[in-house]
């Protein structure tokens, strides 16, 4: 199905390409957001990914699945985008977010921090995203492809153009760090 659309789009069928964009935009956006953690950046990354895809459609031979190829380009664009951005705005994890709830975030002052309750709240997502943000881009991309898209190690290796051993290593170090940071939420 994808291959048919790709073939049509590569011959200039705009409707076919639009169908591909709409079919995968949510996934591309999700990965882009998972790596960038910024909605405007994720939108810019998604736009650039699909423009790149369009320009490279004729090079796609169908040896791998379209989505693996798409994820490879998404990961590369998002990682490059982050590397450029990191040079401008260094990101650090604020550990206070796990130590004590912020009153303005909806936690009454003086109440004891309760992970089970906080899990129900939106702020927990912010804490997880901030924790992911502390990871190097390569580890972050591996984690996002694995946890969000449920790709196998082999698919991640293809998408990131590295060996399966490297994928396992990136996932291992990324998860170790995330578990350290998010320990109160996991126990």
């Amino acid at each position: 199905m994808d291959l048919e659309l790709v073939q049509k789009a590569s011959k200039g069928d705009a409707d076919a390409f639009e169908e591909l964009v709409k079919r995968y935009q949510q996934k591309v956006y999700g990965i882009a957001y998972g790596i960038s953690h910024d909605h405007q950046d994720a939108l810019d990354i998604s736009q650039e990914v699909f423009i790149k895809i369009y320009k490279k459609l004729k090079d796609f031979r169908g040896a791998s699945s379209f989505y693996t190829w798409l994820y490879r380009i998404t990961a590369n664009v998002a990682i490059d985008f982050q590397r450029v951005k990191r040079k401008i705005i260094p990101v650090e994890f604020d550990e206070k977010i796990l130590e004590e709830p912020r009153p303005e975030a909806g936690f009454p002052e003086g109440k004891k921090f309760d992970p089970r309750k906080i899990l129900e709240r939106k702020e927990i997502h912010g804490a997880i995203l901030r924790a992911i943000e502390t990871l190097p881009e390569d580890q972050r991309a591996a984690v996002v492809l694995r946890e969000l898209e449920n790709l196998s190690y082999k698919e991640i290796a293809k998408a990131m153009n590295c060996s399966m051993g490297t994928v396992m290593s990136r996932l291992h170090y990324a998860r170790r760090k995330l578990r350290e940071i998010l320990e109160p939420l996991l126990s």
Binding site: Q26, Y33, L129, L185
Partner: peptide, 11 residues
């Protein structure tokens, strides 16, 4: 947690 945090933000 990772999956739900990202999905919640993007879906």
């Amino acid at each position: 947690l990772i999956s739900s945090a990202i999905r919640k933000e993007t879906e």
